[in-house]
């Protein structure tokens, strides 16, 4: 409570001393404003696609995520926002066990994709990642042809037995990723020869080629120009008709544009999760407000 009063005083102070103090305090504001005991807003939905409870992540002794609980609904686009180092990417990577690749990383909590426990030791991780696909920050096509990039997943998962079926999957995926018209005449040239935006759409096509249920996106547009970004954003809203999407983004405008619900992370905690409209017009928690309006971070 004391900190809230300090903030009030600060907003009223007009003299220079108060301003200096405000500037000093601004740096420490993240520590001054108390965390909510529970996540503010509505982190849960009925009949979720992914149900995540009390998620804690440790890197060796350091705790990166502190008891985060939220739901991701079916065909919902959820965006995770927050300042650098707040744990949003770490959290996202728990959802298809990408953190398994880091030795010192430990994940605790109850994470479920429908009824499937994601951290069930008997679970085949490769299969899980076919159900929960991921698109990364930097486009990372394989050093193969455009066709083989998309066909790679269906092949290893045995989704297509005949060449004809595979052709169809490749075409469909490229169509869905909005890339087909641009590459249909050069399917056998290398994927790395495409522009950055095209490469990222190729990676999306590769991800959806194995018909995942959930697509995770870790800052998918941060390396792209505004037009390529607009195309990906358009794609996200189209994809949400068939897939459930969780997206980590540094661009708040992007979160505002593409997502149905927005989760605000701060120093490893989920501060607030609400309808995107609410978060961007009338956030409930002070920390969300401060971040959204650019007062720190």
């Amino acid at each position: 409570m004391e900190t809230a009063q300090q903030l009030d005083k600060r907003s009223l102070g007009n003299n220079d001393a108060a301003k200096d103090k405000a500037i000093k305090e601004q740096d420490t504001m993240t520590q001054d404003t108390p965390y909510p005991e529970q996540t503010v807003g509505s982190p849960y939905v009925d009949d979720p696609k992914m149900r995540l409870r009390d998620v804690e992540v440790f890197y060796a002794e350091n705790q990166a995520i502190h008891g985060v609980s939220l739901d991701i609904g079916k065909n919902e686009v959820v965006s995770l926002i927050g300042p650098s180092g707040c744990g949003k990417s770490t959290f996202l990577r728990c959802l298809n066990r990408m953190n398994d690749t880091i030795d010192i990383c430990r994940v605790k909590g109850d994470l479920r994709l429908e009824d499937q426990d994601l951290y069930d030791p008997k679970l085949d991780v490769v299969e899980l990642r076919a159900r929960v696909g991921m698109v990364f920050q930097k486009p990372n096509p394989f050093p193969k042809s455009i066709y083989d990039n998309v066909a790679y997943g269906p092949r290893i998962h045995g989704l297509a037995n005949k060449k004809y079926d595979l052709d169809e999957i490749v075409e469909n995926s490229l169509q869905k990723a909005g890339l087909w018209n641009e590459v249909k005449d050069r399917l056998h040239s290398p994927g790395t020869g495409l522009s950055g935006g095209q490469q990222q759409r190729l990676c999306i096509a590769r991800t959806i080629a194995v018909s995942p249920e959930v697509v995770l996106m870790d800052e998918p547009c941060s390396a792209l120009d505004p037009i390529a970004t607009a195309k990906i954003e358009e794609l996200i809203s189209e994809l949400s008709e068939s897939y459930t999407i969780a997206i980590v983004t540094h661009s708040m405008q992007q979160a505002a544009r593409v997502s149905h619900r927005t989760a605000y992370f701060h120093l490893g905690r989920l501060i607030e999760m609400n309808d995107t409209d609410t978060v961007f017009t009338k956030p409930e928690h002070d920390l969300t407000e401060a971040y959204i309006t650019g007062r720190f971070g």
Binding site: A4, L7, D8, R10, S11, K19, A22, Q26, D286, E289, A290, T293, G294, R295, F296, G297
Partner: peptide, 11 residues
């Protein structure tokens, strides 16, 4: 009036 801090942006 608890959250109207218009003078505290990073910019």
């Amino acid at each position: 009036m608890d959250r109207m801090h218009f003078g505290e942006h990073s910019s």
